[in-house]
């Protein structure tokens, strides 16, 4: 069975639960008092998808503003980006839109974008309507799920959906496939700034 390494990054505002989503996916655990991430933390998990093994190389970036400029190192070469917002905080949804813009301008051309509205267990203090988020996701051809890292809702589904959307390597080179295009013309790949 072929093993594919898929780089995946998590982006989003501070405190929305990026690390918790990764912990739930990789370790199946939840810690309400998790420390803020410095730079980015890295974890891997291998899952079977059809006749391939997908090894997710997960770069869980820091949401804090001072690490904002480091993001390109993590989404560079990524097969997928999971942009996370907190359904109980409207402003985290605005931040998400900025991430989409940044990926459109500087991200890899065929990156699969997934939007995760986290903390869906806190429905009674919701600020972002599910339908609004879904409509937005559809408009940019992104995967959309509401998740709860705390209650393990839709976490595995999120990654399965990513596996599903990643172009298969069987006959095509990775650049051509049914990945969702953020822009029409795949422009010249962003070179590192060095």
């Amino acid at each position: 069975m072929a093993l594919r390494e898929l780089k995946v990054c998590l982006l989003g505002d501070t405190g929305v639960g990026k690390s918790s989503i990764v912990w739930r996916f990789v370790e199946d655990s939840f810690d309400p008092n998790i420390n803020p991430t410095i730079g980015a933390s890295f974890m891997t998990k291998t899952v079977q998808y059809q006749n391939e093994l997908h090894k997710f190389l997960i770069w869980d970036t820091a949401g804090q503003e001072r690490f904002r400029a480091l993001a390109p190192m993590y989404y560079r070469g990524s097969a997928a980006a999971i942009i996370v917002y907190d359904i109980t905080k409207e402003e985290t949804f605005s931040t998400l839109k900025n991430w989409v813009k940044e990926l459109r301008q500087h991200g890899p051309p065929n990156i699969v974008v997934a939007i995760a509205g986290n903390k869906c267990d806190l429905n009674d203090v919701r600020e972002v309507m599910e339908k609004d988020a879904k409509d937005y996701a559809d408009s940019i051809h992104a995967i959309f799920v509401e998740t709860s890292a705390k209650n393990a809702i839709n976490i595995n589904e999120l990654f399965i959906e990513i596996s599903h959307r990643i172009p298969s390597t069987d006959s095509n080179p990775p650049s051509s496939g049914k990945g969702f295009k953020l822009r029409r013309q795949p422009s010249v790949r962003q070179r590192s700034c060095c």
Binding site: G39, S41, R66, L70, M73, S192, C193
Partner: peptide
Amino acid sequence: APEYFVKNEPFLEAVCSDVDH
């Protein structure tokens, strides 16, 4: 290094955190 010269301190903090893992 090339990225560090552009991005400074938070970058090194992140590097150290990576190596510490």
